[in-house]
């Protein structure tokens, strides 16, 4: 049960600093020690703000250990809190700012939607998928977004329909499209498989 990759599905390039920028805001919500080491050991010029979403425990994180002295590090423990902190960062940000969003798609595209409301264009923002491949899924029937979907078929958290999860992705909604799989023959729902670990 696979659909071919289509144009709207995001392709994530290796995350690099955009050194034409003069201010940098990094939002990171997943561990990747190698990436953290590579980015933080060679920081860009100008100011750097790191908004880190991490579990509220004592675990060590590569994102907080190798920071340049001049970086502003803001630790958050829920996505809602991280988005609030990001909103404040965007509110005071100036032209010349580059935005880097790294983590699970659900988190980075919610942050991206927030950036959209500030008039940020595509050449000012970079996305990188880290950690879980779980998808946010937009139900085309009831317009609810079901989050953290690991399977190719999922029960919609809004209307309960069995949705097939497509590769078609909306940047505006920050979610993949899901549509009812048993519309033709009600009740005929194949077994769901874990395809987005």
């Amino acid at each position: 049960m696979s659909t071919p990759a289509i144009k709207s599905q995001p392709i994530y390039a290796e995350l690099e600093w955009d050194r034409t920028g003069t201010h940098h805001i990094l939002f990171v919500s997943a561990e990747d020690a190698a990436l953290a080491q590579r980015l933080l050991s060679n920081p860009p010029g100008g100011t750097l703000t790191v908004v880190h979403l991490r579990p509220a425990d004592d675990s060590r994180s590569a994102w907080s250990q190798n920071l340049p002295d001049t970086a502003l590090y803001l630790e958050t423990h829920t996505l809602a809190e991280a988005l609030e902190v990001l909103r404040d960062a965007f509110y005071v940000a100036q032209m010349g700012t580059r935005i880097y969003l790294a983590g699970a798609e659900d988190a980075i595209w919610q942050a991206s939607q927030l950036a959209d409301t500030f008039g940020v264009s595509r050449d000012e923002i970079r996305h990188a998928q880290l950690g879980t491949k779980a998808r946010p899924v937009f139900c085309v029937h009831c317009r609810t977004i079901t989050r953290g979907v690991h399977t190719n078929i999922v029960s919609c958290s809004g209307c309960g329909r069995s949705l097939f999860v497509r590769d078609h992705f909306s940047r505006r909604l920050g979610a993949y499209m899901g549509f009812q799989i048993d519309a033709e023959v009600p009740g005929e729902v194949p077994a769901a498989e874990v395809v987005y670990p």
């Binding site: 032209m95 010349g96 700012t97 264009s121 050449d123």
Partner: peptide
């Protein structure tokens, strides 16, 4: 604009 980090799109 470029020296201040403005992207081309703006």
């Amino acid at each position: 604009g470029k020296a201040l980090g403005w992207p081309e799109s703006h």
